[in-house]
Design a protein around this nucleic acid. Sequence first.
DNA 1: TCATTCTGTAACACATTCGTAACACAACTA
DNA 2: TAGTTGTGTTACGAATGTGTTACAGAATGA
Lengths: 237, 237
Amino acid sequence: MEPPVLRRVLIVDDESSIRDMLAMALEMAGFEVVHAGDAQTALQEIASLQPDLAIIDWMMPKTSGLELCRRIRKNPDTAEIPLVLLTARGEEDAKITGLEVADDYITKPFSPRELVARLKAVLRRTTPRGIDEPVEYDGLRLDPVGQKITARGRSLLLSPTEFRLLQLFMTQPNRAFTRSQLLDRVWGGDVYIDDRTVDVHIRRLRKILGENHSEMIQTVRGTGYRFDPPNTASTNR
Amino acid sequence: MEPPVLRRVLIVDDESSIRDMLAMALEMAGFEVVHAGDAQTALQEIASLQPDLAIIDWMMPKTSGLELCRRIRKNPDTAEIPLVLLTARGEEDAKITGLEVADDYITKPFSPRELVARLKAVLRRTTPRGIDEPVEYDGLRLDPVGQKITARGRSLLLSPTEFRLLQLFMTQPNRAFTRSQLLDRVWGGDVYIDDRTVDVHIRRLRKILGENHSEMIQTVRGTGYRFDPPNTASTNR
DNA sequence: TCATTCTGTAACACATTCGTAACACAACTA
DNA sequence: TAGTTGTGTTACGAATGTGTTACAGAATGA
């Protein structure tokens, strides 16, 4: 029913070589990757970018991986994010203590294929965050159950396609979609439609959103479009 | 102000190991748990214990989960109980067929955290009140015990179908229903009736409600209909 | 700067969905 | 039985949604 979703993964490790290795493997598997070198920036990235999953190294200089996990779980806004611990062989206690906070662990060394398989398994058994939970950015509110979008309390008159488009954007903010990805996910896989049609629907959506909110739909030149909620410093890449 | 409610959840599954696992997770989250190993006892438990929610396995030996859902919906006394289907991965059709009758589904395997989150979400949006309590929106009053609906004191002359339709809407406001969901819940599970019939009954209902109240029944283009009470700034969270 | 590519915008024709009324038959009542 | 009410189906017009095209304007790179 649902087309495959491109997931955003945060990698937290103090060694940049490992980060890069992980990133390459994950990007080849179709994940979007974000980095963090220490717990502090990790927390910031999580808050602003809302990744679908975080890979956290057990051994880190200042704050340990376990401690970072605990902090993430403590904040209700981030408590539901699946966490995967990265441990060296022999750190058996990590597996025991770690699994009480994290959702899975991976032992170094590991093959990229194994890594990807484990992540997918974790994601599969984790809720696609709030598939019917309401989302709100700057007064723009999506109510998936009621199939309704309101701007500062006033309900917007959206066509079905416009609704699905905006719904996709709002549930996957800060992520750039190509036109064909949008056609795939909003129109449904097997249609053959001109790419340019997306542009027209974006135009209509922006018009309905009006001055205030239309700025959240950014065009990514040469690629497609992206939904940027405010107060998101979006410092990656 | 409502006292903290301890919700009673009924688990229906033929495998006792899964029942126990579920029960443990739910009890830790503060739910009261009741078991049933088959559809027959499930129906008895529901009738006598009136749980706030039921988790039902899709695949069961004698009566299937779907069939059980339909029976629960068919009995007016139990029709409004939120139902969550438990499906194995790959049973895609279960999700599609199931969601016409159930309120949500959970795919095995799942994490306890996911389970609890989903249940809370379902409870949040389905049972804000007791089933027999009267509901009133803008002078439109539903009296479930007396099976009567009055508008500003004058009682409305509704046909049985119209009554059940409006009752469903008023007990589940702000929620969009597809035509087949409405057929399932208002007409009863196994009838084969044209979708368009729903439109006609909506029309009749609107006519009876008149200028003032008919606006509460909104059509959701491409989907179905929704009951929108006025003054609902929806400030939850 | 110019040339080229990409995106915004409006207008149009076609497709789809929905509202409405009319009708036939079923269910119920007296 | 005859009359009344309830219900499902159908048909058609109106309203709305959608894809395409054309052109203007903006961004990009040499």
